[in-house]
Design a protein around this nucleic acid. Sequence first.
DNA 1: CTGTTAGCGCTTTCAA
DNA 2: TTGAAAGCGCTAACAG
Lengths: 347, 347
Amino acid sequence: MEHKSITIYDIAKEAQVSSATVSRVIAGNYPVKEETRKKVIDIIHKYDFQPNAVARSLSKKETKMIGFILPDITNSFFSQVFIEAEKYALTKGYTLLLCNSMNNSEMESKYLKILAERQVEGIILMGGRINKALPDVMEVNELSQVMDKMPVLMINGKIDGLDCYSIRTDEAHGIEIIIDHLVSQGHEKIGLIGGIEGITTTDIKVEAYRNALTKYGLPIRDSWQIYSGFDIERGEEAINNLIEVNKEDLPTALIGINDLVIIGALKECRRKKINPFAFVGFDNTDLAKNSNPELTTVSHPYKELGENAIDLLIQPQLNQKKSENKDILMEPYLEVRESCRKIFIEK
Amino acid sequence: MEHKSITIYDIAKEAQVSSATVSRVIAGNYPVKEETRKKVIDIIHKYDFQPNAVARSLSKKETKMIGFILPDITNSFFSQVFIEAEKYALTKGYTLLLCNSMNNSEMESKYLKILAERQVEGIILMGGRINKALPDVMEVNELSQVMDKMPVLMINGKIDGLDCYSIRTDEAHGIEIIIDHLVSQGHEKIGLIGGIEGITTTDIKVEAYRNALTKYGLPIRDSWQIYSGFDIERGEEAINNLIEVNKEDLPTALIGINDLVIIGALKECRRKKINPFAFVGFDNTDLAKNSNPELTTVSHPYKELGENAIDLLIQPQLNQKKSENKDILMEPYLEVRESCRKIFIEK
DNA sequence: CTGTTAGCGCTTTCAA
DNA sequence: TTGAAAGCGCTAACAG
């Protein structure tokens, strides 16, 4: 690909030293006489020489690369984690290899294979197979094989029986802080829409929702908690369902299983020319920030998720000390915006 | 990193052939007796052997990797191109190395260096330094040095004096099809908001805007074309400015320099409880699709941009034939949604 | 069709 | 502090 790639031998010859010496001055952490160091450095600059990382990788058996498989970087929930991980990895000398699986199991497998061949030093998994209610046996086996070769870490997902690091947002607590906030604003009738029963993230949130209501002695009404799904259309469905079932006795505040669902609900309410609710989303995607009205939402601790993922992957020795707890929980926080300002109107 | 990585020699020994033969059956495109092929394949499967791509890269002097530097993958304008490029590259056996420069020139430089060391076979540049009105001399030199080592391609940007491929959306035509559409819906008073004079993409659009109005014999009023910037806040400013300056004689349709600006305008109009315009954005980001109302917008041909970028980079021989035209223009298209449906109301 | 062998460019003992 | 030399795992002539 390059013309006649210049190597450390060329540098060595011109500097009248051995290639080992050149290698040492490049590495930087070896004893080299200042004089020869200078000489070598000069020649390196003269030719704008850049050492071949592929050769180094082969020789050192380390690539300083980490694979990151996620469904679709177009979704800001994923891209926010990825970008934090990437920035942090860079400071540690690592490069991330992003792989968009498009939520397709075959592509996940293909990438798993590619990453292994490319000798990445670890793989971060987010979304995809690690979120399935019933993990596919083949898929689990495949992951298990990968784990024999390199460390694997899952973000916001987990497969039982696979002994690897997992790091996730404490979504139960996320729901709790939403409800704390709503209650502090005077709400007593709080609904939850979206999600699918049996999917981990939904179940966690629903349970936390009930617990929090109980904590405050607020009414738990089954008809105020509506499963539907995870996208905008499912939000529209849910709100229609909610209104139809409850008629007169609607909640005053609505929590979405995620931002999309609540945006769908908002949209449908606008269409119906009603707006009886305080709305709160979950995830703090870019859509929340830019929706109309701007959406109050629970934010994942994106920076921490990304950075901790990298740390856990590249410092195994350090982590093993931290006992056997391989499941890390990170705290979310509430991003208060416009969508539940007018709460007192409802009272 | 792996335990005791098994190599083609291990496979060869067990299959009682030479390593060259194993290499050949893995490569697939060499004459190998079916019998020995079978034998080797079996052993490979038995051990779930995966060839070391790093060693292969060193030996073949090809990494099958392409670098892709962009400002911030969180922005769906970039992520849509990237993901199309990635999907396509995968089918061609290439892996993309995503680098988020965060619009920071130093990070761009750092990544340029990393990519070169990692021996990528080409670099795609989008955003960042290639969009500056006045390119920095140091930055241009740096790129020029990189271009000595490997092919570079710019998407929706170009630096004069740098002889590399560039591929961009025909934004002038994008503006034209917007205006065609607006006119066909009865609009005669059309404004354009956002952008900054002197920035290529703005200048192209403004010129196209004037040309299209002229084509239709429509009034060109300077006060209907308001520079402001590229984000939501700038859209809000622009609309306020527009209303203040024009009072009674407002346009009936408004084109935004991009989706963000027009979303800002929409937001501000809603706040003011006025809604006198048909709105059209530019870029077809995910915000447009999910905004309220859903935004009619010009879409970049994301798939084509991404795929062509890869093709141009990996098939130099094929392209050299296509004469010396290294600047490729791709056609955008109009994504019609809700935001300019009610045009006839205005008439 | 298959084996031998010499690299690819860098790191790393081991000696000096 | 430095150099010689043996790899790292795979590919690609070349010879057979």
